[in-house]
Simulated scan of single mutants.
Amino acid sequence: MTQEELTGKVQAALDEIRPFLQSDGGDISLLSIENGKVVHVQLQGACVGCSVNQMTLKSGVEMTIKKHAPQIESVVNVEVN
């Protein structure tokens, strides 16, 4: 799978979960995919200060991305100050 195809699959996964995040006042954006295995994202809006954002990241975002792109090993939130 090319990097472009992988990025498309990850974006499709984010598009699938985005409405749930937006309904709580948050959002997510893809920053990069490292070595075709680690996805770097940035949680935005209400998701930034949410006490359950790590659970959302692992249970929601990572699970959805792995459904679309099983070769992904982990998803990491990059906090931008």
Rank of each mutant, 00 (worst) to 15 (best):
M1I: 04
T2F: 04
E4M: 05
E4T: 15
E5N: 03
L6T: 00
L6Q: 15
T7C: 08
T7G: 07
T7W: 14
Q11P: 00
Q11N: 09
A13R: 14
L14C: 03
L14P: 04
D15E: 13
D15A: 07
E16D: 14
R18S: 08
R18G: 00
L21W: 04
Q22S: 12
S23R: 08
D24T: 15
D27M: 06
D27I: 04
I28R: 13
L30M: 11
L30Y: 13
S32Y: 13
S32G: 08
I33D: 09
N35R: 11
V38N: 11
V38A: 13
V39I: 00
H40G: 08
Q42W: 10
L43W: 08
L43S: 06
L43T: 06
Q44L: 06
A46Y: 12
C47D: 15
V48F: 13
V48I: 02
V48T: 12
G49C: 10
G49K: 14
S51G: 09
S51E: 12
Q54C: 03
Q54H: 08
M55W: 09
M55S: 07
T56R: 11
T56F: 11
K58D: 08
S59L: 06
V61H: 13
V61M: 11
E62M: 06
E62S: 13
M63K: 15
M63I: 14
T64C: 10
T64N: 14
I65K: 14
I65L: 04
K66M: 08
K66I: 01
K66D: 03
H68T: 04
P70H: 00
Q71A: 02
I72V: 07
I72P: 06
I72A: 15
E73G: 12
E73F: 00
S74Y: 09
S74I: 08
V76L: 01
V78M: 02
E79Y: 15
E79Q: 12
E79M: 07
V80D: 03
